[in-house]
Design a protein around this nucleic acid. Structure first.
Length: 679
RNA sequence: GGCGGGAUAGCUCAGGUGGUUAGAGCGUCGGAUUCAUAACCCGAAGGUCACGAGUUCAACUCUCGUUCCCGCUACCA
């Protein structure tokens, strides 16, 4: 690897539309913080950048829902997030926000530079426009009926009921959420970043020059590159964001994904107004992006393309992306409140930052998705932090106080067994370093914990409490060595468990905690007075854990209750409007999966006339499509034919939406004549 | 459907340019011990390394196919 002079570490900017949860922490912030603390301990030049991502449509929607301004929303969450990070010990050099003036200026400048270099292409397209509110509608501002599951409140980008991603054109009966009016199509101009033009060098840079990236990262990039890159819009018609800084762009802002990563740079600039460029433009700087797997393509392809298009910036050297953390077997979900929220944890478990840090690292989703359970949290705390680490520290201190009034005793001649023990932890430094350098935080922490295991074993094997009756010199040596191991633990755990390390250093009156001293046995001077033993960690009892589990069960219950509520009835229509619709009864003659389409079933329907073919996107709910053959179903008979996957679909099979979002074809209970009208 | 990642002890995970008895932590069981937050220490049980073929003297490790989980992507009237 190249010898870099300094390291810039960025962490995915949390979206200021909700608080931080353990998934964010495990995937991004805890590993990044460990890495940064480690580099700082080694006295390397490092800058740790964080901040809130505060633009984009979802924030405006939340604001609208609550009847406040977008600024109110981002202020609220920015403060919650910033404060919880601070309390949790994520040691950012700066945690700023994309609504800062520095960011506003820099993002504009970067856009302008790329623009002036001809790095964008301009395209005019038709988009929905709300005539009453006199503005273009972002995908999220349009609701309508989901063509897939029939949910009436699907958004223009996604149906939250069935999870399908949509485009506004897909929606049936689109409606503006701003004024409630029916939007019309209108022409609008936007700027695009032509990723396709960047494909060649990206391919070389990633696939040839960065084979060392994690398999999930490398594979995902390769997948995208092989599919071929498309131009991506970098502007939107919206009033919340950074104005597009060119003529003729009134009412347009930078698309949030364009401005957000620039936040890394502007936050650096805010911190170091005169000195920021060396962290972003010097080839001797190593740039690292810590992110979750949802952000891989963005940080490996899109953002680098932006930086390259601008021309003066360095590219990331590595993008250590983690997978996702589940909670008690289910996906973490902000909207379903299925999460352990950091700010709540900090309140409910005061002074237990390190416990969560430890558990999240021990269980980090480094190679695949992982599960967080409260039982595991309790077990890790009680069986590892308390029983192994805390217990060893306590033993060493208690013994020293008992036999030597709390002063570090002299180290006499070392026995073979002493030397053997020393051998075991001599190379801890090299091992932890090697693991951390390769972003293997889970194993690195385990290696640190191993020191405590060595200590416990040493005490058990040498039994100083027995020797105290006969050979106090020997006891002194044993305890000196034990205390040296304790001091080593304080250093080794410093990146992982900073709060406990500080507490331990206080107990040991240990001032220096230079990483380079790790592995030495002269960290504590003879005669040094130690503080009275104090527990490093305390046990977590069953009732505390049960309360947390109960809290989640309650969430689940209330989620179920809300989902089961039928939706509100749609606005009235006239009888005439209904009569325009031709709903018929038909018998399924044949039903099979459409090849090369996951969701489509192809029906052949006896409609009493010449028969018809209808496609329906319900394949995932009918693993055995043949089961439907012979059943009588209802279908819309007077939709114009539409080609799907090359097949003409002549109508729409009616299905009912279940509480879990799945679909069931509505069937006739009694035999009817094929072709009967439903009136 | 295409592409990518994953599948190894009850649980969480290591592992290897293919080569003697496949590792760790936790949990379980047994033993020892009392300095310690009934903690620590020692020992044991527990795995056809997802499934099926192939290459090979030899495969958990390579190849192909299949299944399941996660993600990206197409499809959803």
């Amino acid at each position: 690897m190249k010898n870099f002079k300094r390291t810039t570490v960025t962490t995915a900017l949390p979206y200021a539309n909700g608080p931080i949860h353990i998934g964010h922490l495990a995937g991004v912030y805890v590993p990044a913080d460990i890495y940064v603390r480690y580099l700082r301990l080694k006295d390397e030049d490092v800058l740790f950048i964080g901040g809130s991502d505060e633009h984009g449509v979802p924030i405006t929607l939340t604001a609208r829902k609550e009847g406040v301004t977008p600024q109110d929303i981002v202020d609220r969450y920015h403060n919650i997030i910033k404060e919880s990070f601070e309390t949790f010990g994520i040691s950012f050099d700066i945690y700023s926000r994309t609504t800062s003036s520095t960011h506003r200026v820099l993002a504009s400048e970067i856009f302008k530079t790329i623009h002036d270099k001809g790095g964008f292409i301009e395209k005019t397209s038709e988009q929905y426009y709300d005539e009453k509110a006199q503005q273009f509608l972002a995908d999220r501002y349009i609701t309508g009926k989901c063509p897939h599951c029939g949910n009436e409140r699907a958004y223009g980008d996604q149906c939250e009921s069935c999870g399908t991603s949509l485009s506004p054109d897909d929606l049936i009966n689109p409606q503006s959420t701003i004024s409630g009016s029916v939007p019309v199509k209108r022409e609008t101009k936007h700027w695009y970043l032509p990723l396709d033009q960047h494909e060649a060098w990206l391919r070389q840079w990633i696939l040839e020059e960065h084979k060392e990236w994690k398999p999930n990262v490398y594979g995902q990039c390769k997948s995208w590159l092989d599919m071929g890159l498309q131009p991506r819009a970098v502007s939107r018609d919206l009033d919340w964001g950074i104005p597009v800084p060119v003529k003729g762009a009134e009412g347009k802002v930078l698309y949030v994904w364009f401005d957000a990563p620039i936040g890394y740079i502007s936050n650096t600039k805010e911190l170091l107004p005169n000195d920021w460029e060396k962290w972003w433009k010097d080839e001797d700087t190593r740039l690292l992006h810590f992110i979750g797997k949802d952000n891989i393509v963005f940080h490996c392809i899109v953002f680098p393309a932006m930086l390259k298009a601008e021309g003066s910036y360095i590219l990331p050297d590595n993008v250590p992306a983690n997978e996702f953390l589940n909670l008690e077997g289910d996906k973490i979900s902000t909207s379903r409140n299925w999460a352990v929220w950091l700010h709540e944890y900090l309140q409910e478990f005061p002074d237990k930052q390190d416990v969560l840090r430890y558990v999240l690292t021990a269980n980090a989703p480094e190679t695949k998705d992982n599960d967080f359970t409260w039982k595991d949290f309790q077990a890790r705390n009680n069986n590892e932090l308390v029983a192994i680490y805390g217990n060893f520290i306590n033993r060493a201190l208690v013994l020293t106080h008992k036999y030597f009034e709390g002063k570090v005793p002299e180290m006499g001649a070392l026995t073979d067994y002493d030397k053997q023990t020393l051998d075991e932890f001599k190379n801890v430094k090299a091992e932890v370093e090697n693991l951390l350098d390769h972003f293997k935080f889970r194993e690195a922490q385990k290696e640190a914990m191993n020191l405590a295991r060595i200590g416990n074993k040493y005490l058990a094997d040498t039994e100083p409490w027995k020797l105290a009756k006969t050979d106090m010199n020997r006891v002194g040596t044993i305890l000196n060595l034990s205390l040296q191991i304790a001091a080593n633990l304080a250093i080794a755990f410093e990146p992982f468990l900073p709060f406990s390390s500080k507490k331990l250093r206080d107990l040991l009156n240990l001032e220096s905690f230079d990483w380079n001293k790790l592995g030495r046995i002269d960290l504590l001077k003879i005669g040094l007075q130690l503080k009275k033993p104090e527990l490093l960690f305390e046990k977590i009892e069953d009732d505390v854990i049960e309360m947390q589990i109960q809290k989640l069960l309650d969430t689940k219950k209330s989620n179920q209750l809300t989902t089961w509520k039928p939706e509100a009835i749609k606005e009235n229509i006239s009888f005439d409007e209904f009569m325009k619709m031709d709903i018929r009864v038909g018998t399924v003659l044949d039903c099979q999966k459409v090849p090369k389409a996951d969701k489509l079933l192809q029906f052949r329907i006896d409609d009493g006339l010449k028969g018809r073919t209808i496609l329906s996107g319900i394949a995932e709910y009918y693993p055995n499509p043949a089961d439907l053959i012979g059943k009588q179903v209802l279908f819309i008979a007077n939709f114009p034919p539409r080609k799907l996957r090359g097949i003409d679909s002549e109508g729409m099979i009616l299905s009912a939406e279940n509480p879990d979002g799945s679909l069931t074809v509505v069937q006739s209970g009694v035999p009817l004549s094929n072709g009967s009208k439903v009136v």
